[in-house]
Amino acid sequence: MGLYAAIAVRSFRRYATYRAATVAGAFTNTVFGLIVAHTYLALWDERPALGGYDVAQAVTFVWLGQALLAAMSLLGGGFEEELGERIRTGDVAVDLYRPVNLQLWWLCADLGRAGYHLLGRGLVPVLVGGCLFDLRVPTGPARWFAFLVSVLLGIVVSFALRYLVALSGFWLLDGSGVRTVGVLTAVFFSGMLLPLTLFPGWLGELARALPWSALLQVPADVYLGRHAGGELVGAMAFQAGWAVVLLATGQALTAMATRRVVVQGG
């Protein structure tokens, strides 16, 4: 336990050293929040209560998206590039021989990173957005708690998805193509483009059932209080379920990759 906590702390500190990048990223998130929020205002002006959100909820959704963008690694830039590179160069063999679980190791590192990004890149957009727009704030500590748990689950699902993307490097020559597809899918199906409730018909249903909705759509809905009681538990069970399934897949693939590396000698 001590080791894994240490990994997370070290990772948090590592990202904390990129100060200029953090400021630049928070600035860019804020600018995008500003632009997108206005387009949502225009849309909800035409269609109040679209997708089940009122105007304030829709605008809050925008700023939540910008605040969680970095923490959820929706545009990439997390551990997956480093791990992908280690797989490409064969350095990963060293990691596989270590007496630690590869997936758990990177999960802790990514949790540390996400923790930093949540604070460093999430607070500024939300504060600026809160000053300029009428945003919804959860009432009561229970909802805040639920929201934080939902964000944590979202980060784990995001990690598990990116871990699978990185592992594909064991079987594919060039991992950058898969990474790009991974980012595109995440942006499209997480709700980052538009709330998934706005997606028409079967596309909407599909999007809401896929794991990517655990990254933004579900935490945002929990924050906005759209789930109550059993539904809230259901939403979080949905996230947890995907987390378990994806982590288990990652574990199985890691074992396969390990056999491959050990048998073929890297």
């Binding site: 990129y18 100060r19 200029a20 990048a21 400021v23 630049a24 990223g25 600035f27 860019t28 600018v31 995008f32 632009i35 997108v36 206005h38 387009t39 205002l41 225009a42």
Partner: peptide, 24 residues
């Protein structure tokens, strides 16, 4: 390290000018 700032103006500017000014 602050390379991302320009995204706010290039891609951000692009997103902005995709919509009519009356929206903003």
């Amino acid at each position: 390290d602050a390379a991302e700032v320009q995204n706010a103006f290039t891609h951000g500017g692009n997103t902005l000018t995709q919509f009519p000014p009356h929206v903003f």
